[in-house]
């Protein structure tokens, strides 16, 4: 029996997003669970004990969307999902601004939890986005965190 493909939405945008609106959009007739992840801008760089005034995100148009599409495709090969939405903001953001939304719906909760976790872990390591933090007019390109690579290990079985 062939699997039903979930409804997919991928958006890279400057504008903010509305979590409740996006959650409603993940509803299908057979949806019984929706799991959302929202990433926000930190106001403090704890490693260097520095206040962050703002952050700017850039991406690689075309490749970013296709990498996210591949990750979503992999997620629904592993779990039965009814909908996936990924929204990632670019441009200048301030502390507490929303950066990323990953919403996953499914018939039952476990698939939505796992699918959301999987998509976020792979997005962190594969989707071409780069952050630069600014404080007191100093720019600091955020470096890759190896714990993001470690997080992938749980999916490699």
């Amino acid at each position: 029996m062939s699997k039903n493909y979930p409804m997919i939405k991928i958006k890279i945008q400057n504008e903010d997003f509305d979590i409740s609106e996006e959650t409603k959009n993940l509803h299908q007739n057979n949806t019984g669970a929706i799991v959302n992840f929202v990433g926000v801008v930190r106001g403090l760089d704890e490693k260097n004990n520095q206040i962050i005034n703002s952050m700017t995100l850039e991406h690689y148009p075309g490749m970013t969307e296709s990498e996210i599409e591949k990750i979503i495709f992999d997620s629904y090969k592993r779990w039965e999902l009814t909908g996936v939405t990924v929204i990632h903001r670019v441009g200048e953001l301030k502390p507490s601004d929303q950066i990323v939304f990953v919403g996953v719906s499914s018939k039952h909760r476990q698939n939505a939890f796992d699918g959301c976790n999987f998509i976020m872990d792979w997005l962190k390591t594969k989707a071409p986005f780069w952050k630069v933090e600014e404080n007191n007019n100093k720019k600091n390109w955020v470096s890759f965190n190896d714990s993001d690579n470690q997080a992938l290990k749980k999916w490699k079985k």
């Binding site: 995100l57 690689y60 962190k124 390591t125 989707a127």
Partner: peptide, 10 residues
């Protein structure tokens, strides 16, 4: 061709 550092989105 594109050259870039490891990605830091999310």
């Amino acid at each position: 061709i594109a050259f870039f550092p490891p990605v830091t989105g999310g």
